[in-house]
Design a protein around this nucleic acid. Structure first.
Lengths: 220, 220
DNA sequence: TCTTCGTTACAGGACATCCTGAAACATCAC
DNA sequence: GTGATGTTTCAGGATGTCCTGTAACGAAGA
């Protein structure tokens, strides 16, 4: 298993897919800098390893992370590798600022949102994970974001942010917030990498939703 | 880096050293099931990789994890691999019950102690980690366990338990509690693996210190 | 239908990894 | 000093991984 993610080509593919998108085999090959044949072999390994899922449409085969659990595992793994290994200095600042982690927001922005939700008592941080408080449910209802009654995944879950070293919001809530900010044109996805760009409108929404005065600068 | 821990022999060595002990090269070779020459090569790699430290005494060379940070990274890594990979069914129940994680207590017991400390307000669980509360410092003083004034490592830190999937207590406090329970003969170390055995006296101390009625059974 | 494109499958060779055997070095016991 | 033990180093060979051809398969487009 460690060997699966240890290969640089496969690691690159997984990094690209960590935004929750699905990509064709050829595109993954280009992004990871490998030939189509080599990429196909790597993708087969990842598929057998249970990390990816695939769906064929037309003459393309689109690969994606199998589910949110796999994404969570990879994010945690990155954090652990980060602890023992190198620094994140070389990383694009945009990625450290805000990025997609499967289907929710990660990076400094994701952690800030998480902090706000806990500070305002909308999410309770227990030792066994997170939970949505009564006040939180009220707040969600006002935003027309009440969780569905039957839900397979956890309503809210902490996900260890590997650039910040602190949790951000995952689970249903994380996905819902991320989707809301995107449909409201507050966040724009970068099609090349996992980065998310905050629009002026998004800045206003952060204040409205979370009471955040968002000013980000990279601390050296 | 992923390749370092991916090799089964090296993984075995690291697993043995995760109890914070230091072991001679030959002993590690036996435990990992490798020849002395092969083991020496693996240990060199781990040393170069910054995961191990070594100290020569006599004709032995004793290897140990470099520091608590490395141990923390490996514990988190195990958790991540666990998330994506196989189950822990095959594990010795004693290890799931209580074990050393570098210098503090992990496993079901470690998580239970962590829960108790938070429930009683002695440790505050924030989104940015743990902290010792005023009440906690009072409680520690009564136990004659006040933290030293100048301390390099964090006073208390959550460490993701890879068998329980929830945090246990690490940092200075984790080490102090673990040492206290051992010197009071409440916990006995197994010299073969990382397991910790709870003595009757230890059971009493759990009640005295943490208000825990400790009865453990493996839940299938 | 025929061609083109995306993808996969199967050979081959290059390369790295891992182990074993022999040997050197250091320390301890006698 | 001599021998035994623990550890490392070096050379060799086996094994496995990874990549590049070449070729096959399927779907889309002319």
């Amino acid at each position: 298993m460690g060997a699966l993610v240890g290969d640089p080509v496969r690691a690159g593919m997984l990094a690209v897919l960590m935004d929750g998108s699905e990509r064709a085999a050829g595109e993954l090959a280009r992004q990871a800098g490998a030939s189509p044949q080599a990429a196909s072999a790597h993708l087969s390994l990842l598929l057998d390893g249970g990390l990816l899922a695939v769906s064929a449409r037309g003459r393309h085969r689109y690969y994606r992370l199998r589910d949110a659990d796999v994404a969570h595992a990879i994010e945690t793994l990155s954090f652990a590798a980060n602890l023992a290994g190198r620094k994140t200095e070389h990383l694009a600042p945009a990625l450290k600022h805000a990025r997609r982690c499967y289907d929710h927001i990660a990076g400094a922005l994701g952690v800030a949102i998480c902090d706000s939700l806990i500070l305002k008592g909308r999410v309770i941080a227990g030792s066994d994970g997170f939970a949505i408080s009564a006040a939180g449910h009220e707040w969600l209802a006002k935003l027309d974001l009440s969780p569905p009654h039957a839900m397979r995944r956890a309503a809210v879950r902490p996900c260890l942010d590997w650039t910040e070293g602190r949790p951000h919001i995952a689970g249903w809530l994380g996905a819902a917030l991320c989707e809301r900010l995107q449909t409201a044109c507050g966040l724009k996805r970068n099609s090349q990498n996992r980065a998310l760009t905050l629009t002026p409108k998004g800045r206003a929404l952060l204040g409205e939703y979370f009471g955040l005065e968002w000013r980000w600068r990279e601390h050296a």
